[in-house]
Amino acid sequence: MSSRLAADGNSADVIQVDNLVKRYDELVAVNGISFEVHRGEIFGILGPNGAGKTTSVEILEGMRVADSGMALVNGIDVRRHPRAVKSIIGVQLQSVQFFDQLKLHELVNLFGALYSQKVDARELLARVDLTEKQDAMYKTLSGGQKQRLSVAVALVNDPVVLFLDEPTTGLDPQARRHMWELISSIRDSGATIVLTTHYMEEAEELCDRVAIMDAGEIVRLGSPAELVEELLATGFSKDREVRPADLEDVFIHHTGHALREDS
């Protein structure tokens, strides 16, 4: 994965988005957003449900066509060459299942074939901690395991950019932390990652830069630290005392950090 990034890393920005607009009938889902994603970073798109995160990402993935504006992925115009973009990116979609009658290694090999790539299913599944499950049917997996499989499948074509759409929604705290470790390790191997989330602690933990979306527009963009500084500079202070631990820390402390067999 890191090899390709190093090889064609001539441009600093792997994604360039300029004034993208998408309407559904009366609803303006994406209202003129512009941003860049740098090579090798984890870029977060934050926002409440319905903010337009998923629509924005799906336009970049070549799955939806914007009404106006321009999006380049690795220099390729998504609107004009959606399949060329699809072949160099990896995607994990929200609420998507896989063929439930196939075994995990069969699914990984099948998706490899769809990109005309020979893949080492064993190695990919090991990377997402699913080695013991490689001969299991998809339908026998837990929620966290399904989510990790979808990451493995997203990596079959050694993608230039990995898109993760709410990768930890619906997971329990252990599975979420496990997914965070996985995402960090993928970034450490050199990939660029675009992820959407509505969990702020996830963005703080993982993202190099974040764009905060609301009602189809980007209202703030910067590194988490910068955005916090910016807010504090306005004289903002929390009205509640911040405790050194919270309930999630208690939960993790008592139930253990390790991943459960079924999570």
Binding site: A84, S87, Q97
Partner: peptide, 20 residues
Amino acid sequence: RFRAQGVLRRLFATPIGANH
């Protein structure tokens, strides 16, 4: 069923065409 599960959407995210 494939459509309801989103399997088809996931296939659509790959570079294959409908005819495949």
